[in-house]
Design a protein around this nucleic acid. Structure first.
Lengths: 123, 123
DNA sequence: CTTGCACCTGACGTCAACGTCAGGTTCTAG
DNA sequence: CTAGAACCTGACGTTGACGTCAGGTGCAAG
C-alpha cells in the first residue's frame, strides 16, 4: 500500500503519516523510486497511534509504549515496564481529573435545568 | 492579595495569572499604581481553571464553562447549556479513550509480568 | 531619600502535531 | 510517449499555554 491509501483507511492525513515516520513511530519500506510502501498492518498501527493521541498521551509516551504494544510484548525489558507503570498511573490520574470535571458539568447542567433542586455541592 | 501570593497559593506561575486575565478567565482590580490585586476567591478560581486544563479541556471550553460554574449557575442561557452538554459528551468520549488505553497498558504489563498467562485479547 | 524586591508592559521564544506551500519526481492510464 | 495524479523533500506557518528577557515602575523598610 502507498501512503495515500493508508491515510484514507486510517482516517488521517498523509502529512501525519510522514510525521509519524519522522518521529520513529511508523516504519515504511521504499520503492526503487523512493516512494513509501506499507504493509497492511500499518493501518492498525496508525489507528493505535491515533487512539493514544486521542487519549491525550504526549508523543514521548507514545514512543515508549508503542514497541511494547505491537512488537511482541514478551520482549519488554524491565525498565521499560517501569515506565509503562508510571504512565499507567498518569493515565489513571487523568481519568480521575476528567471524572471530576464531568461531575462539575453535570452539576451545572442539572441545576440549570432544575433550579429548585438544592445546590448540594455548596452545602 | 497581590499576584505573587495568589500564584504561590494556587501553585501556578505569575505569568500564568496574567495570561488568564488576558484570556478573560480571571479578573483583577488595580491599585492606584497599577498593580493587580485579587480577592481571596481568586485562588479557588485559579485551581478550578487548572483542573479544567489538567483534564485536557481547551481554553475555548474553559471560557464557556467558567461563567456557568462560578457566577451563579441559574443565569446560564439555554444555548450555553447546549454547549456545556456538547462538552460533556466530549469529556465522556475522552474518558472512554483513556479507559481503553489504560486497559491496553494493563494488558501489556500483565503479560510481561506473567508471560505464561494466555494473551486472551488476541484470542 | 534610597535600596531593593515585587510588580508592570511589551514582545519574542518554545513545543507538539501537524497544515500548507514550493518546486521537483514517479507511476499509471490511455 | 505523454498527461496528470500521487508522491517526494525541505521549510515555513499555526495554535495553546505559557517561559523568558528587556527596560521601566510601585511600595515598604531603614
Amino acid at each position: 500500500m502507498r501512503i495515500g491509501e493508508v491515510a484514507e483507511k486510517a482516517g488521517v492525513s498523509v502529512r501525519a503519516l510522514r510525521y509519524y515516520e519522522e518521529q520513529g513511530l511508523l516504519q515504511a519500506g521504499r520503492s526503487p523510486g523512493g516512494q513509501r510502501h506499507y504493509p497492511d498492518t500499518a493501518v492498525g498501527r496508525v489507528r493505535l497511534i491515533q487512539q493514544l493521541y486521542a487519549a491525550g498521551l504526549p508523543s514521548r509516551v507514545v514512543r515508549k509504549v508503542l514497541p511494547c504494544v505491537d512488537s511482541g510484548e514478551e520482549k519488554a525489558p524491565p525498565e521499560l515496564l517501569d515506565q509503562m507503570a508510571v504512565e499507567r498511573v498518569r493515565v489513571d490520574q487523568r481519568i480521575t481529573d476528567l471524572l471530576a470535571v464531568r461531575d462539575q458539568l453535570d452539576d451545572v447542567i442539572a441545576i440549570a435545568r432544575d433550579p429548585d433542586s438544592d445546590c448540594s455541592h455548596v452545602e
